[in-house]
Nucleic acid binder design. Structure first.
Length: 875
RNA sequence: GGGCAGCUAGCUCAGUUGGUUAGAGCGCCACAUUGACAUUGUGGAGGUCACAAGUUCGACUCUUGUGCUGCCCACCA
């Protein structure tokens, strides 16, 4: 017997890098080369294309486990479609992530050199950022490779590289020319810390308990959590329908005593005021509050800045001018209290403050001249639809399918609330606004919004763009739906008049085993590289895919990864065993499955039928984006059916080389998208002699039902075959159970007598298997058997099984066991009896159901009789 | 304030149109080690399917309500 050279334990580190490098160097991740290699080998081609862009990780450092999830899922799709014969491309890249990257480099600069970016100056600072980014990208590339991602590196992109910059400039110009981009002074979210504006979506709202002050303002009492903004408050607003203030007229003026003396206040009536909140009266600060800004716009009111862009009070604050907000607040309250204008304070008030999600700066709304994209202006050449309407129709018309579907609703709701998009930033790192004399940079999402087509060469009309756009699937986390997915739809619908992708698949967040977010401060972070080093890439991928559902968060523990490491090793050993068996059978490549004279056993027919079903189910599951189910089906088949049963049977029924070869080939292909490394190693070991061919280029398995000769041989009586093998398995389990319950040592040789009744023929034909797997020395199968006096017994599907154990039975144990079985059976019969007691059941339920239940009942009754008889034997 | 998701074995989760004695993995208990694999095998214990009402011959599954848990959205000064 030729000894396999494969070691007993699979060690991923021995193969992974080498396998990946081989595929990459051969160009197999490129659609052109892969297609050519497949064509040369005469493999199938669908004529379709399959394309994906990789969501570009931020160039801020390293990948986390969330990136690993997306890479695993995307690689499954890509490898599957490549094997199907689609012209498949997956474009990798990184995102310059303007704000995130700049603030990271600023922090490093401060930590290492105690310098601010202004100390370096514009040019030098950007050099530092570029160096940092270049370094990050090297790390990221390495990590993506470690995950086994079969992306086309020859097409790698960066949101800030030259071709993408060209696309950004072209898009800006196009939108500017179409009047969609305009410059305007509007209220924006200002981060005084990072000294830049940020978009609405980048705000994070944090709850905070803060004192809520009620001040006397002329005849009114107004309330605020921000006294420091109140200097310029010369408008007092109430709801037009508020009966309490009916005596006051819109536009009426009155003199009130305020922080720095008397001012003239104007009454404004506006429905934006909530009558049930506070006193129903408020003063407004249009320069520093979005709602107030809108009221002021409606009524044409004056707007005046109170706080500057560094967060200090302006001269309007009089004696408080120059103070920081936090410092001024308390002093202003004290002054108002001294002037007897403080009515009362609510110390338990909870409100929400806006912080910049990138960098945590406290947001100060300001009016500032900025660049905006108008989402409500009809677009020429797009049927007069607005950008909002274009975004909506992309999804509502079915052009873009979202998995899971419930996110459609969330998406629409977001569009409904969408305001003009502020695209200019005051940070240094990023695409410069392509307008002479303007120093602002563009929101990073402006460039990533172009990602599906800027990566394919737009604005040039490239072949890639024609062939691969719209892309097939966009796989990403649901947390990025608005930031990115929506903006890609906007850009693509506008610029190309087509959707950017056909399907959006949204995965959930990876949390720790207690459901907490992973964070460095909690110390619960699982680093993909660490666990890959420990358990192998294949195991990590499986643990991130199986047991997860789209749109839902998942919990990951190291134990789970270890579990899939075990499975990887199981598959490895299945492969070793089958390879050894094939070679022992004198087999090699493509052993014939239909030599004359070979007859196939029940087990053969069963495993081939099941394999065929598995092909169908797995393919179906992947096509419907149910990767978890696909993986589970494969795992259960591989471990629970193939390894636990068929391979054990194969040790008894010899000469299975041809079937085993076929099974292993199919199994490796099916598993390959999920675990690219271990499958590739096994494939190379047995199935290819060509150094330049790989499993990843093989054809995806198809169901064999259509092949006539296979059908006749294996599948013709599939249902019966599957039922029969189940019966045999039940008998074996029952024997094992009897042995275990009665503490019969596994090594002990026993005699087993089976009263087969209507299963007699089946049992006789499978006697060798029952003997071997049940560890039976002497098997006596007959139509009926009288129970031997000193024996243990049980029943299975109407058959009776006896194990004579002269002098060895512990009657107490055996009695208890039988009584337990009888009790369970009685309960079952009672439950069934209930059904029939309700006369409506037999009348209303479908006939086949009633028939089924009747059969169950009679089988159960038969069963209990036999058990009872067995019990009586030993009483 | 509006919306969405989850609640099934100690833990992590399956359960596709209502009819299975409700399943898997991990963990736990017992037993087994020269024959592919101890990263293994065999057997076992373990569940009022969050709660309540309703529809139905029949509900883990459908409807309504309640309770927790989490997330998203919203201009409450």
């Amino acid at each position: 017997m030729p000894e396999s050279e494969l070691p007993k334990v699979y060690n991923p580190a021995d193969y992974e890098d080498e396998i990946y490098a081989r595929a990459e160097q051969a160009g197999f991740f490129k659609p052109e080369t892969a297609q050519a290699a497949r064509a040369k080998a005469g493999r199938k081609k669908t004529g379709r294309s399959f394309s994906m862009v990789m969501p570009p990780p931020n160039a801020t450092g390293t990948l986390h486990i969330g990136h690993a999830v997306m890479l695993a899922i995307q690689d499954i799709l890509v490898r599957y479609h490549r094997m199907l014969g689609d012209e498949t491309v997956w474009i990798p890249g990184t995102d310059h992530a303007a704000i995130a990257t700049q603030s990271k480099v600023e922090r490093l600069l401060w930590e290492t050199e105690k310098k601010m970016r202004h100390d370096l100056g514009h040019e030098e600072f950007l050099k530092r950022v570029d160096a940092f980014v270049a370094d990050s990208r090297l790390t990221i590339r390495k990590q993506i490779r470690k995950m086994g991602a079969s992306c086309d590196w020859s097409r790698e992109c960066f949101t800030l590289d030259e071709p993408r910059s060209l696309a950004v400039r072209a898009m800006f110009k196009k939108m500017y020319d179409d009047g969609l981009i305009y410059r305007g002074s509007k209220i924006v979210n200002w981060d005084p810390f990072l000294q830049t504006t940020v978009s609405d979506d980048e705000l994070e709202w944090q709850e905070e308990k803060a004192p809520f002050y009620f001040f006397k303002y002329g005849p009114f009492v107004i309330s605020t959590a921000r006294p420091e903004t109140k200097f310029g408050d010369k408008y007092v607003v109430m709801h037009p329908a508020d009966a309490r203030y009916a005596e006051y007229q819109d536009g009426q003026k009155l003199e009130v005593e305020w922080i720095n003396g008397k001012i003239i206040a104007t009454i404004i009536k506006d429905p934006a005021v909530d009558m049930n909140f506070g006193t129903g009266v408020m003063t407004i600060t249009p320069w520093h509050d979005a709602t107030d800004f809108e009221i002021a716009e409606r009524h044409g009111l004056d707007k005046e800045p109170i706080i500057d862009f560094d967060g200090r009070l302006l001269p309007v604050a009089g004696e408080f001018a120059g103070m920081k907000i936090a410092e001024a607040r308390q002093k202003i309250v004290e002054k108002l209290a001294a002037k007897k204008l403080l009515d009362h304070v609510d110390e338990n008030y909870v409100h929400r403050k806006a912080v910049n999600s990138r960098g945590n700066g406290l947001i100060e709304p300001q009016i500032k001249e900025q660049w905006f994209i108008n989402v409500n202006k009809p677009v020429a050449g797009r049927g007069g639809k607005t950008l909002k309407e274009l975004m909506r129709s992309a999804v509502s018309d079915g052009g873009v399918n979202i998995v899971p579907e419930r996110f459609k609703k969330i998406y629409f709701h977001w569009i409904d609330n969408l305001r003009d998009w502020n695209i200019s930033r005051q940070i240094w790192y990023g695409h410069k606004v392509p307008i002479e004399g303007d120093d602002d940079t563009l929101d990073t999402w402006f460039s990533s919004g172009l990602w599906t087509f800027s990566t394919l060469g737009w604005p040039e009309e490239t072949n890639d763009l024609k062939k691969f756009h719209p892309t097939s699937v966009l796989e990403t986390g649901y947390d990025i739906l608005f930031f990115w997915v929506a903006r890609m739809i906007l850009m693509s619908m506008y610029a190309l008049g087509e959707v950017p992708f056909r399907t959006v698949y949204l995965h959930g967040l990876v949390r720790d085993e207690q459901g907490r977010k992973m964070s460095k401060s909690l110390g619960n972070v699982i680093d993909p590289l660490d666990v890959i080093a420990k358990y192998g890439t294949d195991a990590v991928r499986l643990s991130l895919v199986i047991g997860t559902t789209p749109g839902n968060d998942t919990r990951l523990s190291e134990e789970k990864i270890a579990g899939y490491r075990n499975f990887t090793n199981k598959l490895w050993n299945i492969g070793r065993f089958i390879i050894a068996t094939i070679n022992n059978n004198g087999g090699g490549l493509g052993m014939p499955l239909r030599p004359l004279g070979i007859s196939f056993t029940l087990a053969d027919k069963w495993i081939m039928s099941r394999l065929d079903e598995v092909i169908q189910e797995v393919t179906g599951a992947i096509n419907s984006f149910d990767f978890s189910r696909a993986g589970e089906i494969l795992r259960d088949f591989t471990w629970g059916e193939l390894a636990d049963w068929y391979l054990e049977i194969a040790k008894i029924e010899k000469n299975k080389g041809a079937i085993l070869e076929r099974i292993l080939q199919t199994l490796l292909k099916l598993w390959h998208p999920f675990m690219p490394f271990v499958t590739e190693v096994l494939w190379r070991e047995q199935f290819t002699e060509d150094e330049n061919d790989m499993l990843m280029l093989q054809e995806w398995p198809e169901t064999s039902v259509k092949k006539r000769w296979l059908f006749k041989r294996f599948f013709a009586k599939k249902d019966t075959v599957i039922q029969d093998i189940q019966t045999v398995q039940d008998v074996i389990s029952a024997i094992r159970n009897l042995r275990a319950e009665n503490k019969i040592e596994p090594a002990k040789k026993i005699t087993v007598m089976i009263a087969g009744h209507n299963k007699l023929e089946l049992l006789v034909s499978q006697a060798e298997i029952i003997k071997a797997l049940g560890r039976v020395e002497n098997l006596e199968i007959a139509l009926t058997h009288k129970q031997p006096p000193q024996s243990v017994a049980t029943t299975v599907k109407g058959m009776e099984i006896f194990i004579p154990l002269v002098g060895l039975i512990d009657l107490t144990i055996e009695r208890e066991r039988l009584q337990k079985e009888i009790a369970a059976m009685e309960k079952y019969i009672a439950a069934l009896g209930q059904k029939f007691a309700q006369t409506d059941f037999t009348r209303r339920a479908p006939k086949e159901i009633v028939e089924m239940e009747k059969n169950k009942l009679s089988a159960a009754k038969d069963n209990i009789e036999k058990l009872q008889a067995q019990l009586n034997q030993i009483k």
